[in-house]
Nucleic acid binder design. Structure first.
Lengths: 138, 138
DNA sequence: CATATTTTGCAACACTGTTGCAAAATGTAG
DNA sequence: CTACATTTTGCAACAGTGTTGCAAAATATG
């Protein structure tokens, strides 16, 4: 795990610091998306709020994580799969939010459908967020 | 217009006040979704920030408007079509955000596709937000 | 028109996210 | 391993967003 963390950071040309190691570890350990606040709590009081913001921003810039828009408008973050490169996300999976346990997950095996738009519109990115009841809760 | 506004408010069992009239008027006049901030500005200084929040919340509760989740996590609001009732939204249209002009619109004629989820997941609601270039900007 | 109810504006507050800057940590090259 | 340049961190301060309690004002009702 430790090796993998350092590997990811180096590949992204990020210097290896405590906060980046810790936060990346959280992502690797978690199988669901996390809000900024979750990360702040889980990382512990050792890290400043501002550092968490900056670390997440760095990870976003480097394509290590991606954001998930949610209907209640709380930003969540999740790891990108390895087909993402710096600045170029190739996320074509949908996101699922369980209304019971509140957990947000990437359903990597479910791809976003192609949406046919009216004449004149050009699609660049499609976000699909499904809410409902997850495997565990049903 | 004035008649329509009062009609909508009465049907939703909301008392007719200046702020509700004004804000509902803004929605009826606008063909794109508005952020809280936009509404605050457009409504003018006559209305308190808090009143705008409470008015939007009332409209949401009554199913007059709905929210649109955006990738940059700014909440936007748009009118519901008349097939929405109190607390029961039947929104099955997709949303479009233009990356050039920034305008968010409901594409009422484009319906959300059915997403087939893995075993165990139950869908309750599907949100589709497409980003790209709109008719006007292309 | 008088009264009960609802809504508004204000003040205060908590939370979220950003910026500038000095101190600390990291990377690099000898 | 050390010294130095560069990057990152923590802190303080701030702007923006959203919420709550309460008295005053507006609205609905009979």
């Amino acid at each position: 795990m430790e090796e993998q963390i350092i590997d990811v950071l180096k590949k992204s040309q990020l210097s290896v610091t405590d906060s980046r190691r810790k936060i990346l570890e959280l992502f690797l350990q978690s199988d669901s998306a996390m809000a900024h606040h979750d990360i702040e709590i889980k990382a512990g009081e050792k890290f400043d709020r501002v550092t968490v913001y900056r670390t997440l921003q760095a990870f976003l810039d480097k394509g290590i994580i991606h954001t998930i828009p949610t209907p209640d408008n709380s930003v969540k973050y999740a790891l990108c799969k390895d087909n993402c490169e710096q600045g170029h996300h190739h996320d074509d999976h949908i996101h699922f939010i369980c209304k019971i346990c509140g957990i947000t997950t990437c359903l990597d095996e479910v791809h976003v459908p192609e949406i046919k738009l009216p004449r004149g519109y050009k699609t660049q990115q499609t976000e699909v967020v499904v809410s409902g009841i997850c495997k565990e809760c049903s």
